[in-house]
Amino acid sequence: MQYLSKLLILIFLNIAFFQISVQAAEMKEPLHPEWSFEGPLGKFERASLQRGYQVYTEVCSGCHSMELLSYRNLMEEGGPEFSEAQVKAMAAAFEVKGAPDEYGDVVMRPAILSDKFASPYENEQQGRAANGGAYPPDLSVMVKARHGGADYVYSLLLGYEDAPEGMILDDGVYYNIYAKGQKIAMPQLLSAGAVEYSDGTEATSEQMARDVTMFLTWTAEPKLEARKRIGFKVITYLLILSFLLYFTNKQIWKESH
């Protein structure tokens, strides 16, 4: 048992080292606000997710697609949980490609629940052309695709500052203290009042960054709440079972002597 623990500890340390060392590449440690979805029983804040969706549609979706999401997801359990009527109305505000008409031309139609989120661009080339060569990445799993996850995304949205003197930035490149090399092709968009929240919350840049990051965490991991809920039950079950088996095992070995 003693060796076992030694070995396990070594292996875990090894993994931990690996995780840290890989990402050490001269980046500033991101901010760490308190997230409601952290911890073993964490959950999303519904209202924040709903506001986050508003920030995404009004600010981000002009450049960033979210191809893995469907409008129906917005009403699913564990997400923003808008009502069906609300989501139908939200979807109908977007145009998507419909079936070809009798002449074979593709007709645009209002989106319905089962449609994927409408993309800002036809294809990657169009996206590049519209953004000076830098393609704004799809945001569906962005939070899981960046080291630091939600903290990193949140920090990046708030990390814009004036470039230090002597630093020359190319056209279409901005100074952001949390970006790699402090340079990023995305301009600052979340200045105070960039959206007008329908629930009356004051739209400070911190508030908007928080809400949209919460929203993006959900889009990246839509089953997070179910996962933690089931996980808690599973671990409880396994703990009880391990106790039972421990005593059963002891009893069996006692009897054989």
Partner: peptide, 16 residues
């Protein structure tokens, strides 16, 4: 008591 332990453990394992 022993049987009780065995049966509980068995049932619990089977349920899981």
């Amino acid at each position: 008591r022993r049987n009780f332990l065995y049966i509980t453990t068995g049932t619990f394992t089977a349920a899981g």
